[in-house]
Amino acid sequence: MSSSDSQPPQDDQQWETRLQQVEETLINLRRRYSQIQRDRARKEQLEAKLQRLQSELESLEHHLESSLVTWKDFAEPFWLAVRFGGLGIIIGWLLNSSNS
């Protein structure tokens, strides 16, 4: 039996300690990789949800804007302007023709 076949117990213990550290590091790396995978999937879900919400918000804004401004809202002021504007023009013509 040669001296290289039998290692002192201290070398075995160092080897075991280093191996355990490597295993723990690998476990932590796998956990981190799994977390990254979950985070990427969640990010994609949230981006898709954000796009849907933005589209829905734009649609709601369009509906609200179109419902706020209707012909009925402008009908009365429009006809008042036509009536009094037309009346003003007629009075202006009458006053102009009476001065001539």
Results as ranks from 00 to 15, higher is better:
80 L>P: 01
5 D>V: 12
37 Q>P: 00
65 E>K: 01
4 S>A: 12
62 H>I: 09
78 F>W: 09
97 S>Q: 12
12 D>E: 05
53 L>T: 01
43 K>H: 12
72 K>M: 05
75 A>S: 12
11 D>N: 07
40 R>M: 08
91 I>M: 05
23 E>A: 10
36 I>F: 00
27 I>E: 04
59 S>A: 13
73 D>P: 01
36 I>R: 02
3 S>E: 13
26 L>W: 01
31 R>C: 02
76 E>A: 13
73 D>L: 13
34 S>F: 08
54 Q>I: 01
84 F>R: 03
26 L>P: 03
1 M>P: 12
40 R>N: 14
50 L>T: 07
2 S>L: 14
19 L>S: 12
67 S>L: 06
14 Q>C: 15
98 S>W: 05
99 N>E: 10
71 W>E: 09
65 E>S: 05
74 F>S: 02
19 L>T: 11
68 L>V: 00
32 R>M: 02
25 T>L: 10
25 T>E: 07
10 Q>N: 12
71 W>I: 11
81 A>P: 02
37 Q>M: 10
57 L>R: 06
51 Q>C: 04
37 Q>K: 09
17 T>K: 13
51 Q>V: 04
27 I>N: 04
10 Q>A: 15
52 R>Q: 15
30 R>L: 02
89 I>M: 05
58 E>M: 00
60 L>W: 02
88 G>V: 14
61 E>S: 11
70 T>L: 03
93 W>D: 04
79 W>K: 14
13 Q>P: 04
52 R>H: 08
3 S>W: 02
24 E>L: 06
27 I>P: 00
8 P>T: 11
27 I>K: 02
35 Q>Y: 08
54 Q>C: 04
23 E>C: 00
49 K>D: 11
6 S>K: 11
39 D>K: 09
81 A>R: 03
92 G>M: 13
64 L>H: 08
83 R>C: 03
22 V>P: 05
76 E>V: 15
31 R>M: 08
74 F>D: 06
95 L>Q: 12
77 P>E: 06
72 K>L: 10
100 S>W: 04
29 L>D: 00
22 V>D: 09
67 S>T: 08
65 E>Y: 05
99 N>F: 06
18 R>W: 00
41 A>F: 14
64 L>D: 05
6 S>G: 03
6 S>C: 07
62 H>D: 10
78 F>D: 02
69 V>K: 01
94 L>G: 10
